[in-house]
Design a protein around this nucleic acid. Structure first.
Length: 172
DNA sequence: CCCTGATTCGC
DNA sequence: GCGAATCAGG
């Protein structure tokens, strides 16, 4: 899979929108999240808004090769920045979301991979059975992507179904 | 355990 | 340039 102009453009867009590398990889298709991250770095747009302010690291010993123990941590200008990180009150303002407002909400804030339009009769044991839309509606369909052995859903839908806590960390 | 991005390095 | 493997952290 090459990085065509369109794909790079999409990558840029999604990345700037704050999507995670794995999500972007899922949308682009045919690439791993590592590929996305690698590309992001190559494009020099690693620092997005913020989220994982991971400090530069320096390790890694190639795969079972030489053991480079670079112990160069001497010249570290220690600065005691008086970070006044507001121990922000946990009470954020929760917008009261009337359930009856716009009830046809797109399911999740998580971007779904390809989302095919499979009908109920098209489902097999290996297809993700994540429902899209209103079951009573005509355009109701299923994800249909490859489902994991661990469940009826594909990797991404399984995530949105079972782990809302993990990613709620990052503020959209 | 799940996930995230960051880095290195062989290709 | 590409991305798997790995690392480091939440």
């Amino acid at each position: 899979m090459n990085w065509t102009d369109e794909r790079v453009e999409l990558l840029r867009k999604l990345w700037s929108e704050g999507l995670s590398a794995s999500q972007i990889a899922a949308q682009l298709g045919g690439v791993s999240r590592n590929a996305v991250i690698g590309k992001v770095h190559r494009l020099k747009l690693s620092g997005r808004g913020r989220s994982t302010a991971t400090p530069a690291r320096q390790k890694k010993t190639a795969q079972g090769s030489s053991i480079q123990k670079s112990v160069s941590r001497a010249a570290t200008t220690q600065r005691h920045v008086t970070t006044s990180i507001g121990a922000t009150a946990l009470q954020a303002q929760f917008d009261a979301e009337p359930v009856a407002r716009h009830y046809i909400r797109p399911v999740e804030n998580v971007v779904v991979p390809i989302s095919r339009h499979l009908q109920l009769t098209d489902l097999t044991e290996r297809t993700c059975k994540w429902p899209n839309g209103d079951p009573l509606s005509e355009d109701f369909n299923f994800c249909g992507n490859e489902a994991a052995e661990t469940g009826p859903y594909c990797k991404y839908h399984a995530r949105v179904a079972f782990q809302p806590a993990s990613e709620r960390r990052r503020s959209r």
